[in-house]
Simulated assay, not measured.
Amino acid sequence: METIILPHLPNHPLHVCLFKDVSNAPFLRQQLLEGNTEFEYAFVDASVLLSRNQVLAACFRAINDLLQGRLKSRNVHSEIVFSLSPNNNISESFRRFGVAEASKHILAIKVGGDDASVGEHLKNNVKGSMVPFTDQQLAKMQDESRVRKVYKIDAMGKEAEAFVVGSMALKGS
């Protein structure tokens, strides 16, 4: 697990774990649907992620919206999933970016909390292999055709990342 402090939000640490080959995605999804407070995480299907920068931009926007009283979803964790989307349809955002029954690679993000207890909880409840949260690992998990379809892009790479982050930032403007 990695703890990330965003420069402008030092009081809101991000605890991030990337898992590959997850076998219990239906269980994790069910915990979210039931509103189980022990599972207040942003569980993201890693196959639609381009980069760390994309994820950190979504986290920044969600935390900033929390602090400004502008959340459009239930909590900061669901807002992270919503912030990954290029449009304002919340249910579509959860379908495209949230953990699904068939998700095999999952990024778990917790805003705040004790890093030791978060790491232990995830280790005990996510049945998969923890790997470093790097662009290289995300690239191995990426479903390029889904990414192209979700963001309506032709080319992949740094240009795609700039377009994706820009479309996330402009949403709702």
Rank of each mutant, 00 (worst) to 15 (best):
N36C: 09
V81A: 06
E101T: 11
N87L: 09
S91T: 13
E38D: 15
F94W: 12
T37S: 15
L33Y: 07
V55N: 04
F94N: 12
F60T: 14
I63H: 01
V76F: 05
R52L: 06
G35W: 11
Q31C: 03
V76G: 04
E79C: 04
E92S: 14
E34W: 13
G35L: 07
N64C: 10
F27K: 03
R52M: 05
I90A: 13
Q68H: 15
A57D: 11
L67H: 09
F94A: 09
L66P: 07
L67Q: 14
R74N: 14
I109M: 01
P26D: 00
S23Y: 08
A57T: 11
Y41C: 02
Q31F: 09
H105L: 02
S78I: 06
R61F: 10
D21A: 01
I109W: 01
G98V: 01
F39K: 08
S83I: 08
R52V: 05
D65C: 09
F60Y: 12
K110A: 04
N88K: 14
N36W: 03
L66H: 08
E40T: 13
N87R: 09
A102F: 11
I90V: 15
L67M: 08
L28E: 02
A46H: 03
R96N: 15
Q68T: 12
S83K: 06
Q68R: 15
I106D: 00
R70L: 14
S47C: 14
A57H: 12
S47P: 13
G98D: 07
S85Q: 09
Q68D: 13
V111F: 02
V81I: 14
D45F: 08
F82R: 13
S23A: 01
S23M: 02
Q68Y: 08
S47L: 09
I109E: 00
F94P: 10
D65F: 15
F60W: 13
A102S: 10
L66A: 06
I106G: 03
L32I: 12
P26R: 02
G69D: 01
E92Q: 15
E92P: 03
Y41H: 05
S91I: 09
Q30C: 02
S47M: 07
E34M: 12
A100W: 10
E92M: 10
E101A: 13
S103K: 03
N75E: 06
V48I: 10
L28F: 02
N89L: 12
D65N: 15
R70Q: 12
V48C: 07
R52D: 07
A62T: 07
L50E: 14
E79G: 04
S103Y: 00
P86G: 09
L33G: 07
L33T: 11
A25H: 02
L56D: 01
R95L: 14
R95Q: 13
L28M: 06
I80Q: 05
S91C: 10
A62M: 03
A102G: 12
E40Q: 12
E92F: 11
G35S: 03
N75H: 11
H77V: 06
Q54F: 06
